Computed example of a mutant assay.
Amino acid sequence: MSSIKLILGPVAFQDFEVPSKIQMGGRQILSVHEFIGGGRAVDAMGAQDAEITFSGVFSGANAYARALLLDTARVDGSVLPIGWDNYFFRVVIHDIQFDYQKSWWLPFKITCTIVPDPVGSGTINLLSGVDVVAADLAYATTLAAQTGISGQLISPPLILANKNVANSVLVDAGGQVASNWSAFMDSKDRTASVVTLDQVAESSAILAGSAAMIGYLNRAAKNIAAPGA
């Protein structure tokens, strides 16, 4: 079984869900000018990330519920954090396909489109270590405000404290997602189902926001500790 540990939004992939590989990468946009005599000039116009694609099998008693949770995020167009090993991105689920075989066995294939990150690999080399840290903390501050954690600018001395708060919010939001989803699955009333589904989306957004916030804080802390930062 694969050793890749993968989290996408509110779902931590486990057992057969864990992909054996994750396809990613990108290309450089080029402007190529051909000249008489065989000459050529190539201008690099910027990097373009490829989509992130992986597959696996949702299995177990809650396989259908977990699959539907991600499909709901696709329908909503939610921006979700995705992370594995040392990789962290913000993405939107572009395509998700299920091969329904049984309620407890759903092979899937998921394709995610990366949301541009101004402090990501495309521009990080153009910024100093201090600028990268400042940008990461600015993004973390925005996410903190969106998730109701804090509206104050996060400074380097407050990284650990805010990370601890974000971890607490992450755990609470995860519990809310599970509770709201259980209520949705048990609901027999159409109106109540719509309300609980909205609550699932709201708690999922908080879960995703706090997870993304932790990602930016971790990167800021790493850059502060790096030589020359």
Rank of each mutant, 00 (worst) to 15 (best):
I110F: 04
V115Y: 02
L126I: 00
D117W: 07
C112P: 11
T113L: 11
T123K: 14
I114K: 12
G129C: 07
T111L: 05
P116L: 11
L106G: 01
T123F: 15
D136I: 08
S128C: 09
K102D: 14
F98G: 01
S121T: 10
G129L: 04
Q101C: 07
A135D: 06
P107Q: 10
K109N: 08
F108Q: 03
L126Q: 07
I110H: 03
W105F: 12
P118S: 05
G129H: 02
P118T: 08
A134Y: 00
V130T: 05
T123E: 14
P116Y: 11
S121V: 11
V119T: 14
A135V: 14
N125L: 01
H94A: 15
V119Q: 01
F98I: 10
Q101I: 09
N125K: 05
V130R: 03
C112K: 10
G129Y: 02
L127P: 02
Q101N: 10
I124A: 14
T113D: 09
K102R: 14
I96C: 06
Y100I: 09
V133K: 01
A134H: 09
Q97W: 10
A135T: 12
L106D: 05
A135P: 08
D117E: 05
Y100Q: 13
N125G: 12
G120T: 04
T123L: 14
V119H: 00
F108W: 03
V119S: 07
F108L: 07
I124K: 10
S103K: 07
V130C: 01
I110E: 06
T113A: 12
D95K: 13
V133C: 07
I114M: 10
S103Q: 13
F98C: 09
T113H: 00
L126F: 06
D99A: 09
K102C: 01
P116F: 03
D117C: 07
K109S: 10
V130G: 08
N125C: 01
D117L: 02
